[in-house]
Amino acid sequence: MSFIWKQLEKMKTIDTKGLLCPKPLIMLKEGLLDMEAGALLRVECDNDTSLKNLLHFLRDQGVEPEVSSSGNVHTLITSVPQKELEGIDAAAYCSADSPGNDYVVCIKSELMGSGDPDLGKLLMETFVENLKLQEKLPTHVIMYNGGVKLATKQSPVCAALTELEDLGTRIMLCGTCIDHYGLQKDIGVGMISNMVVITETLASAGHVVNP
């Protein structure tokens, strides 16, 4: 216990009390500059808007601060987020700078493999469920032909695909295929796209995974 208290005492503290938005965030970002990822940092603030904005920034960087409040003073204890990696931006998505690194999953059918269709369906569902658990997530999941049926609200993997989307993977659906199967009203997840975008995405993918 005393060890933890010592750690807490040593902890760098950013005191933003009495300051209005955006000053607290400016001070937090300044404070993070010379700190190692994973180190602990304390931020104090005394207005709710600033607290909300600080939390939004930190959560977006992938850390979950602990907040304790006494009166109108809020204390955040957070670990220092990983620095954003250089080059992982929209431009890098469209170029094939790092082949083999980024990957796109291409779902062409409701079924995985050929043979027993019931088995194929089960396999595909299990595949999608497992996809979201991968340490390295795909940049895109492209779904065409019968594959778009997996993106309907009724699909057993709609929730898994939505989770994947919330984690930042772009679920991309073939609009022509949706029209063909008459599923316009049933789509529950994904961006309804076209062959121009799909071709471009496949052509610039690091590699393509075909389940």
């Binding site: 955006p22 965030l25 939004h56 992982i88 984690l167 930042g168 772009r170």
Partner: peptide, 23 residues
């Protein structure tokens, strides 16, 4: 970090209607 409060308010409004890829 000099992000005006309006950006946060606008972000709250757009919410899950907007999707950003991880990049």
């Amino acid at each position: 970090g000099s992000i005006p409060g309006a950006s946060f308010r606008n972000l709250e409004f757009t919410g899950t209607k907007i999707h950003f890829t991880r990049g």
